[in-house]
Nucleic acid binder design. Structure first.
Length: 479
DNA sequence: ATGTGC
């Protein structure tokens, strides 16, 4: 089944010291001169292209054992596998003990997905689409927003995520939330991974966002962000597992609202800070790794690992609240345009995060946790379906699933060549995408991504996930 | 990923 191109690629990699084999829907990769490193595996259909850069990055990750303590236990990658800018491939999952690798998460801390549904037909939605778009434009059309928030609320959300934010919205004298719509948010907390609350600390947050008292002007909360991030209105076109779908509140014909966003500038700030610190900690008589991956050892520097995890959690908390507030904007406008709709949360889960699992940690970069029975949300693109699935907790793949279809063509390639390609060739025919930046529509066109169906299919066949429902895009908002 | 950039 392998094409000549792939065979040629594997031979070229072998000459560079990277042993890559393909069988049974997966590549295995290992640097020949590192026989003790675990063999990295990539789940990928034979018909899909694979890039040398991404394979090298994954083998480097398997090679990122801390020389003075710590272990790489397991490295794998999901079918949305493609090269990353910072030396770690998107779709990588690494299980470690005695060490964590800040670069394996990077800057986009707690990038994740959130899904709501509403009892509203596509027909009724489209009848007032223009009014809805007009209102959402006002909400979304700026990369920055000036949210004015009490400093104590900001502090609470950095330290405790959604729980902290809810606590700060409580009127202590009456025991009620300051606004009645917050009641619904509180009842939905069990539908957020880790309840949207991790152990963070304000000392890791950008200083200007955590004054002692007063008000904070924040430009990141309740904004979508760039790249592949979006807010999308979809239609539930197929239910594959009715029992689970009903249990999770999803029905055929409903409208779905999907949010893909992360920790914005906070993750950039904290991720960048720790990328630099990990490198500095490394310079204590150790040879610099060529891969630019600098693991922190919990054996030689235990405080560095607890500090990093606390810092990562601080950004993760911000991301959970960011998605929550984006969803509240959506619900507000839906109610304004379509009347009293509940639009309940189905699930919110991170796909860029380090979690304690097994004897150590699992770091996923562009990969969803997919533990047994857990809801998993995998978006396609603005012109192709997205999926709601259930995790099967497959330990061969570190209990993970892909976070999307995976990029096929770079943003740069599309901004340079895409503008000269036809709408049809870009897969944009019939796509309703609202964005102020025309190039975003090109860079994020369906042709930028792998076809989602085989990506889902290979994960179902390999026993990572089970499909619960499929949603078709109606309207996409890009920043 | 980031109001970015070969």
């Amino acid at each position: 089944m392998q094409s000549k191109n792939i065979s040629r690629l594997l031979r070229a990699l072998a000459r560079q010291g990277l042993d890559v084999q393909y069988n049974n829907q997966s590549y295995s990769a290992r640097w020949v001169d590192s026989p003790d490193a675990p063999i990295a595996e990539v789940l990928l259909p034979a018909s899909f292209p694979v890039e040398a850069k991404a394979l090298k990055q994954l083998a480097n990750l398997a090679n990122a054992k801390h020389p003075k303590g710590g272990n790489i236990c397991h490295v794998c990658a999901t079918p949305d596998f493609h090269p990353g800018d910072a030396g770690v491939a998107i779709g990588s999952v690494v299980q470690t003990s005695g060490q964590v690798i800040p670069a394996a998460v990077g800057s986009d801390i707690n990038c994740g997905m959130r899904l709501h549904v509403a009892d509203l037909s596509a027909e009724k939605f489209l009848a007032r689409r223009d009014r809805f778009v007009e209102l959402m434009k006002g909400d979304f059309f700026f990369g920055k927003r000036d949210v004015t928030m009490a400093a104590r609320t900001m502090k609470a959300l950095f330290q405790d995520g959604v729980t902290g934010w809810l606590d700060s919205m409580l009127d202590k004298s009456t025991g009620n939330f300051v606004r009645s719509d917050i009641n619904q948010i509180a009842t939905e907390i069990d539908r957020i991974f880790l309840n949207g609350s991790m152990s963070g600390h304000i000392k890791w947050a950008p200083q200007e966002l955590v004054p002692e008292s007063g008000l904070v002007r924040d430009g990141g909360l309740a904004t979508i962000g760039g790249g592949n991030h979006f807010v999308e209105v979809q239609w539930v076109e197929q239910i594959t597992n009715p029992k689970l779908a009903y249990r999770w509140g999803v029905k055929k014909g409903q409208l779905a609202f999907m949010i893909h966003s992360g920790s914005r500038n906070v993750g950039k700030y904290i991720g960048g800070m720790w990328r630099d610190w990990a490198r500095k900690l490394w310079s204590e008589g150790l040879k610099y790794p060529d891969s630019r991956l600098f693991p922190l050892s919990s054996i030689t520097h235990p405080e560095s690992v607890t500090d990093y995890l606390e810092a990562e959690a601080t950004a993760a908390n911000y991301a959970f609240v960011n998605r929550l507030l984006l969803a509240e904007l959506l619900r507000l406008r839906l109610r304004q345009v379509y009347g009293d709709l509940e639009a309940p949360l189905v699930y919110d889960l991170p796909h860029n995060i380090t979690l304690p699992e097994g004897q150590g940690w699992v770091t996923r970069k562009g990969a969803c946790p997919a533990h047994v029975g857990q809801p998993v949300i995998i978006p396609g693109s603005m012109g192709t379906p997205s999926y709601l699935l259930m995790g099967l907790g497959n330990s061969d793949w570190c209990c993970s699933a892909s976070h999307g279809a995976g990029r096929l063509r770079s943003r740069f390639d599309l901004s340079r060549k895409g503008n000269r390609e036809s709408e049809d060739k870009l897969g944009l025919t019939g796509v309703d995408c609202i964005t102020l930046r025309a190039e975003r529509r090109i860079e994020e066109a369906p042709a930028a991504y792998k076809p989602i169906a085989p990506v889902i299919d290979v994960q179902v066949r390999a026993g990572l996930v089970q499909v619960v429902a499929r949603m078709h895009p109606i309207l996409t908002f890009k920043a």
